[in-house]
Structures are given as structure tokens and as C-alpha cells.
Design a protein around this nucleic acid. Structure first.
Lengths: 232, 232
DNA sequence: CGGGATGTTGATGGCAGTCAAGCTCGGTGG
DNA sequence: CCACCGAGCTTGACTGCCATCAACATCCCG
């Protein structure tokens, strides 16, 4: 897994478990069930009874919604520590799929809700997380509704850089893109081809370098990337 | 106000106060301050200290985010009973503006958070609401990211119909659109002209009728509207 | 009744979606 | 070890939707 030490208040709509070490968490542990999902494994199906939720132990998932014609929108990317699922609804509204081999600690949804009900301090932290996720989701509406493709892509790269970027041997910030062009497109509300073109364009102006068949990015000039956010 | 009896789980991301009549609400009443905002009045400014939140007593507001160039996205429409604001953040991420003359019951944010902290049953209902809002926000990402303008507009009309539609004297479902074309465009991530064109087109195929300078809509054939959701 | 705000309609251009062909890389097997 | 193969990525050509600019229509309010 590449994406480990993420900013819990970042824009990926995740929910980190508050670090606590009390009897509360002991109870939570009591109702969990560890499970490993393979790449492409589906944890939750939209439209089916909403019976479970989970926390990500290790790995990486996407939460998606689909149109009737099969166009897919990634509404949230989930990383280690994030909460998985939707509470208080009888039917799942979104599908959750593992992007890499992923270990989850699963809960029965009803039990998790009972746990929230009986552990106010934990519920408080949970509310905090979900409020942050709501803010992130709304911020993404701005991107999806009002920003050009090249802005979406530059902003996405900056987010990734802040999250998983590390200086390489040459002192450049660089990172592996942990998902395919198709996933990027579905996240950004555009197409594979458009993502590819704009990445190439950013490479053309010297902002980034692409390696390993496009799966690895080195940021040559962050300032240039940030200028791309100001659509002319 | 036209939009009164809304579905609390509808797609507008609002938060209804759970109907309770306990000592809890007595305390909440204790910290509220009633205030009336005129049309266009700004309740919360994005980027400024996040000092207050509120419930809508009567009226109608929009919560918006803006790009650096001034393009605006409405991320949530708020109606009577909805919660207004963003808890647990020191700086407001979104602007809240009254679309019509609106009465709010305002709280100091810190006091409201303390109230949540000390009233678990209320906090539980609040978490329920905010979870529903998060689901709604994510569903809107699908629309903004993947759907054509005519689908967005047809879906929006159907939402409005379900929310505020009433049979008229001729037995037709009809309603007043409670906001301008500009607001519709900002909500749907498109432009005034595109909204107008697609409404005209829906009128052309006999799905709707427009009156009062476009401010009032009668749905002649809901089935035709729903067919428009299947983009060909 | 006049003027400003709001909504509609028309003309045009550009961005991005679609279809299609070629490229790259990693993996596999001979 | 190398040739092949296929999935994923890039690039090109074309098209169409929608944003933009502009003119006109309509409504509302004093």
C-alpha cells in the first residue's frame, strides 16, 4: 500500500477511527470480523440490503454510484483507518469495491449502530468525522460542477502530492498513482482519454514527469501545477 | 414560502430537527436567538471564523462554494426545519445566503456543539440527519459528474415535483419554482441559458408547461419527464 | 406606462466525449 | 533470454454538447 499517512481532514471523504483505548473499543473489537478482499472484490452492493459496515485495516477501496446506463462516479476513496459504509439506511446507496487487496474489520451494521448509541464519546468522534466528510463531498461538488478538466486534474495531483508525495533521490516530490486512468476518470467525472491528454499537457509545460507507463508521477514544478488551478 | 412539507430524506441535503419535546430542547431554546434575514442576506461567509449555526424556522437558503474566478456552485438548498452551518471547523467552508426573507433560530456554534456533547439522544438524531445529507451529497456527485444537462434538469424537476408539487384545479401537478434560473444553473452545474433551453425543449415535447415568465411549472406528463432521465 | 431585472432565443466556438489506431510495459511461455 | 501477448495508456480525427456573447422578449414594480 502506497497511501498510508494521510491527512484525516483531507478531501477524500474518509473517516478515521479516533484513537482511543478504552472499554468502548474493546466492545467494538468484540463485534468485528476480519476479512481480506482481493483486487476488485465487492464489499457492498448498491441497491441491496445494507447489512454491514467496516473500518479499513489496510488497503484501498472506492465507493461508487452509477447511472442507469452504467456510467460510474467514484464518490469517495477509502484508505487505511477510514470508515466504510452508510449507517441508518435499510438499502445501500453506493457500491464499495477493493482497488487493491484490502483487509477490513467488518461489523454488522445494526450492531455498529447500537455501539454508537451506547458509546456517546465514540459517537461524538464519529459525528466529527462524518461532518468532515460532508464538507469534503460538498467541496467536490464545486469541482465537478464548475471546474474544467485541466483544473480537476491539476487539483487531484496536488491532493495526491500532499497525501502521498515523498522526495525522491533527486529531491523531487514524486509518487505512484495508486489507481488506473479509468479510476481517475471516474473520480474526476471525465474520461480516460481526457485524463491522459491533460497529464501529457502538464508534462509538456514541465510541471510533472510521467514514468512507469504513466503510473508514477514526479512533480517538477509545484508552482506550475498550482497555476493550472487558475483556469484562464 | 412555497416549499414547506418536504421529505426529510430527500435529495436536498437538509437537516430536519427531530421532533422532541424534552428538557433537551428546552436547553436548546435557551441558547437560540431568533433573527430574520432579508432576500440576499448572508448568514455565513466562507473563509471567515465559523462562529454560528442555526435552524431554519421559515424561509429558504442556499449554501454555496465558489471558485477563485467567481463561478458558484450551490452545494445545498435549505428549507424550514433544516440545520444550517458546519460544525467542528474553525473556519467556514461555505457561504450561506437567504433566497427569500428567512427566519432563523441562531446558535453560537460552540454552544451547539456543547449541547450535542451533553445530549446524546439529540446527537443521535443529528448524526442520522447528517448521514442522510452525506448520502445526498454523494448522490449529487453522480449527477454533476456523469449526467448530461437535460438529465440534470429533468431530474431536478422531478425532485421539485415530489417535494412541492400539488394538483391544480385541472388536476395537473404544478408548482412554483422558488428560485431564479441563475440559482437553478448554479445548483445543476450549468448555465442560465442551458437551463432555459432544456426547459423549453421539455415544453416542446409536451412534458411540461411554463407560466408566469418561467417561474411556474405544470407537469403535463410525468412519464415523459422520467424518460428524459434515460439519456440516449 | 416606463425601465430594470429576469428569462428566452440565436449564432458561434471550444472543450471534451467518442471511436479508432498505435504504443508501452509487464508478464508468460517457449 | 527473448518473442509474444494483452491490458492499460497515449495519440489522433471527428463530432456534439454546452459555454459564451449578444439581441430580444417578458414580467414586475413603482
Amino acid at each position: 500500500m502506497t497511501l498510508k499517512h494521510r491527512d484525516p481532514d483531507g478531501p477524500f471523504n474518509g473517516l478515521i477511527v479516533p484513537a482511543q483505548d478504552t472499554a468502548e473499543l474493546f466492545f467494538l473489537k468484540n463485534i468485528e470480523r476480519r476479512q481480506i478482499y482481493p483486487v476488485g472484490g465487492i464489499v457492498i452492493w448498491a441497491g441491496f440490503p445494507n447489512i454491514l459496515c467496516a473500518h479499513v485495516v489496510a488497503g484501498n477501496l472506492k465507493m461508487t454510484a452509477s447511472t442507469l446506463e452504467g456510467r460510474e462516479q467514484i464518490v469517495s476513496l477509502l484508505f487505511a483507518g477510514d470508515f466504510v459504509g452508510q449507517i441508518f439506511t435499510e438499502e445501500s446507496r453506493f457500491t464499495v469495491t477493493a482497488l487493491v487487496e484490502t483487509e477490513l474489520s467488518l461489523y454488522d451494521r445494526a450492531s455498529f449502530e447500537y455501539f454508537l448509541d451506547t458509546h456517546p464519546a465514540y459517537a461524538h468522534g464519529f459525528l466529527r468525522r462524518i461532518s468532515a466528510s460532508l464538507g469534503d463531498a460538498r467541496a467536490r461538488m464545486l469541482t465537478l460542477g464548475q471546474c474544467d478538466a485541466h483544473v480537476r486534474i491539476a487539483a487531484f495531483l496536488i491532493d495526491l502530492l500532499d497525501r502521498v508525495g515523498l522526495p525522491d533521490t533527486a529531491g523531487l516530490d514524486h509518487f505512484e498513482i495508486p489507481f488506473s486512468r479509468g479510476d481517475m476518470a471516474d473520480y474526476l467525472g471525465t474520461t480516460i482519454e481526457t485524463v491522459s491528454r491533460h497529464l501529457t499537457s502538464l508534462k509538456g509545460i514541465g510541471a510533472i514527469e510521467l514514468m512507469k507507463g504513466g503510473r508514477s508521477v514526479a512533480v517538477l514544478d509545484r508552482h506550475l501545477l498550482e497555476e493550472a488551478l487558475l483556469q484562464p
